[in-house]
């Protein structure tokens, strides 16, 4: 197991480096410069600016320079914010996005699994059809539509919940629901399919033949086995939700990292683009790693195959 983990960590680092390199290169291929009003400044001024930000050197040198600094934990300064260190900006804004994302994923996964289990166990009944109907709705309705809808009813019309901002627990409710609905829908559909499959397995009959309670048959035997494939989608889903909350952050005026990212791309804020991408890809890589480890925890066959 230790060897497997060590191997995986090496791969993770390589993946990360590849992502950084590609991002750096494609970023440099983008048209434009970070400098606004370019046509109003003289070529000398431009050259001076470029020199100041180190953009006059060849791309490979810039790249090596960047990597060298990054290894010391220095991701440069954001062009938009007067060279304020990117790491500081990320440390300030990322926790908000992560909060929102993880809350949505955890709540979404719990409800999704529960709904999937119920639908799978009551296959072919109204409960099943109802759950799947809601699930299809959840997948097809974009989160921002739901967000605006909720804002209108709960925020404006009935004034039950704060309309926007990110100040206390009650501010979390609407954005988290808006994001979680998609997760619930996806997880519920997967979970239902797996449950339907698992409850027809012979080992479930064996478990029932032992006379153990229905609760234990469902949770110790069925759900655990049905979870294995569902966990696969949870990893990428988490990364997508945590990083993809951009629109929701905008709608609810949440000071997260999402809108920051878009701004930095629009303004060619190279260090900020790099920093955000690095954060996102690190998150995705770590999530996939966690999923693989979880796999082994749940399914002993995978654990042993990996250990050899």
């Amino acid at each position: 197991m230790a060897r497997y983990i060590a191997k995986r960590i090496v791969y993770m680092i390589i993946t990360f480096l590849v992502v950084i390199t590609f991002t750096f290169l494609t970023m440099k291929l983008m048209p434009g410069t970070p400098f606004k009003n370019q046509n109003r400044i003289s070529p000398e001024q431009l050259a001076q600016l470029k020199h100041y930000y180190g953009l006059d050197q060849p791309v490979p040198i810039q790249y090596l320079h960047y990597i060298g600094n990054a290894l010391h934990g220095d991701l440069g300064g954001s062009f938009q914010f007067g060279m304020r260190p990117v790491t500081t900006i990320l440390a300030e804004k990322a926790p908000v996005s992560f909060d929102l994302g993880f809350e949505a994923v955890i709540i979404g996964a719990i409800f999704g699994i529960l709904l999937g289990v119920i639908a799978g166990l009551r296959r072919g009944t109204i409960l099943d059809y109802g759950t799947m109907f809601i699930s299809v709705l959840g997948i097809s309705i974009p989160s921002f539509v739901l967000a605006v809808f909720m804002q209108y009813f709960f925020g404006v019309k009935w004034q039950l919940l704060p309309l926007a901002y990110w100040k206390g627990p009650e501010y979390h409710i609407m954005p988290v629901i808006a994001l979680a609905v998609g997760v619930v829908a996806n997880v519920a559909r997967f979970m239902r399919t797996e449950m339907v499959e698992v409850v027809n397995q012979d080992y479930i009959t064996t478990a029932r033949a032992k006379g153990i309670s229905s609760f234990n048959v469902i949770f110790k035997h069925s759900v655990r086995n049905a979870l294995i494939p569902v966990i696969t989608i949870l990893g990428p889903l988490t990364a997508a939700i945590v990083t993809g909350s951009l629109v929701i952050e905008n709608i609810f005026a949440i000071p997260g990292i999402g809108s920051q990212f878009v701004d930095s791309i629009v303004t060619n804020d190279y260090p900020m683009i790099m920093g955000t991408t690095e954060l996102y890809s690190a998150l995705l890589i770590i999530m996939i790693f966690i999923v693989d480890i979880l796999y082994g925890v749940i399914d002993p066959r995978i654990r042993l195959a990996g250990g050899e």
Binding site: Q201, D202, Y203, T205, T206, A207, K220, H221, R224, N225, I228, I298, D299, P300, R301
Partner: peptide, 9 residues
């Protein structure tokens, strides 16, 4: 081959 739960000792 199928009547034992694969994820339980």
């Amino acid at each position: 081959m199928t009547s034992l739960n694969p994820t339980m000792t």
